[in-house]
């Protein structure tokens, strides 16, 4: 085994970034001259393991137990560490979701391996894995090189394309929990799911964000932003200025101290484009700026721009897309 990929699932649904990482790992494993393995942990998650086969894993370790039904860090880490010890991969890759980042850290720390967190690219150089990661909150990049026999990395959503599901030649290997249920030191008391239909910012193909430009009527402004996002099946974002002003909760914040996003389309509504905001969305494929101020820095990074009042332009755009989509 050259690479082991952790496939994150929640309620039996794999996170899209898991497949992006698996697809990239397929080509990296080829370059490293070894097999690609995936691990799926949960209870009643065979469908996810089958899906991993279609994305090209040579082996899928399906680890199921009642104690593994929901993600908990210690029993999940014990499973991954056990597989690494048994199969000695050269690299273990994780999606850089909240859980994936935690799990990668615990596994790498326990195994005495170097870890590159929240990477945006991976390569093989001289047979060894290297990882590119943004540092200084998106203001610099570094290529991480690993010392020692095992490299661990977590990879940001949308760093790689979703692979084609075309194969299923691999095999599923089943096993059970490694840690005794009684030794688990944490329990989940409750879970309150985010409102139905809300798209996660980091996974979103389309993001519509609002900024200080909504100030004259923040409630209406963000309703218009959300309507446009909804009409496109996208997620709603915001600038720090809008979050700090209390117009919208922090979880929507894009930028240096918020989320880093990489959608196909980013529509910035009433966002001036401070460098701190650009650090979080500058890698979007197409950027559209809607702003009253023709001098706003956002126009310097935008592909398309409309100089105008978002309170007029955004609803007109929503109406247009509702006609077409």
């Amino acid at each position: 085994m050259s690479i082991l990929v952790y496939i994150e699932q929640f309620n039996g649904q794999a996170s899209p970034v898991s497949w992006e990482v698996l697809g990239k790992a397929k080509s990296l494993a080829g370059q490293m001259g070894g097999k690609l393995a995936a691990v799926v942990i949960g209870n009643g998650v065979e469908a996810v393991a089958n899906e991993a086969l279609t994305y090209g894993a040579d082996v899928v370790h399906l680890v199921e137990d009642a104690s593994l039904a929901a993600f908990r860090i210690e029993p999940y880490a014990a499973v991954v560490e056990d597989l690494v010890k048994a199969h000695s991969p050269k690299a273990v890759l994780f999606p850089a979701t909240t859980r994936g980042r935690d799990l990668s850290a615990v596994v790498a720390c326990d195994l005495g391996a170097g870890l590159a967190a929240d990477c945006s690219d991976l390569a093989v150089d001289g047979g060894e894995l290297t990882a590119v990661r943004p540092v200084f909150s998106g203001n610099m990049l570094t290529t991480v090189r690993f010392v020692g026999p095992l490299a661990v990395a977590s990879i940001r959503p949308r760093s790689f394309p979703t692979p084609e599901a075309d194969g299923a030649a691999g095999e599923i290997v089943r096993s059970g929990a490694v840690m005794a249920a009684g030794d688990i030191r944490e329990q989940i008391d409750s879970f309150e799911a985010t409102a139905g239909g809300e798209v996660s910012l980091t996974d979103a193909k389309i993001i519509v964000s609002g900024g200080r430009g909504v100030a004259k009527d923040p409630e209406l402004g963000f309703k218009l932003v959300k309507d446009l996002a909804d009409s496109l099946g996208g997620a709603m974002g915001a600038s720090r200025a809008a979050v700090d002003a209390g117009y919208i909760p922090y979880k929507h914040q894009v930028g240096q101290t918020g989320k880093t996003v990489r959608p196909d389309l980013y529509i910035a509504c009433g966002i001036s484009g401070a460098i701190q905001h650009l650090a979080g969305m500058g890698n979007s494929k197409i950027i559209v700026a809607i702003n009253k101020d023709p001098e706003a820095p956002i126009f310097q990074v935008a592909n398309y721009g409309v100089v105008g009042d978002l309170f007029e332009v955004v609803p007109a755009l929503t109406a247009e897309f509702k006609k077409r989509l």
């Binding site: 005495g112 391996a113 170097g114 870890l115 590159a116 943004p134 540092v135 998106g138 203001n139 610099m140 990049l141 570094t142 290529t143 991480v144 090189r145 690993f146 010392v147 020692g148 650009l278 500058g282 950027i287 700026a289 126009f299 310097q300 990074v301 935008a302 592909n303 398309y304 721009g305 409309v306 100089v307 105008g308 007029e312 332009v313 007109a316």
Partner: peptide, 25 residues
């Protein structure tokens, strides 16, 4: 065990904005 190499500034985004302006919104 994880060493930073080749520290660099990200490439600046090179895009020339196309401003859209028609007679009505």
């Amino acid at each position: 065990l994880a060493q930073w190499t080749d520290l660099r500034k990200p490439a600046a985004r090179s895009s020339q904005v196309v401003l859209v302006k028609e007679a009505t919104v």
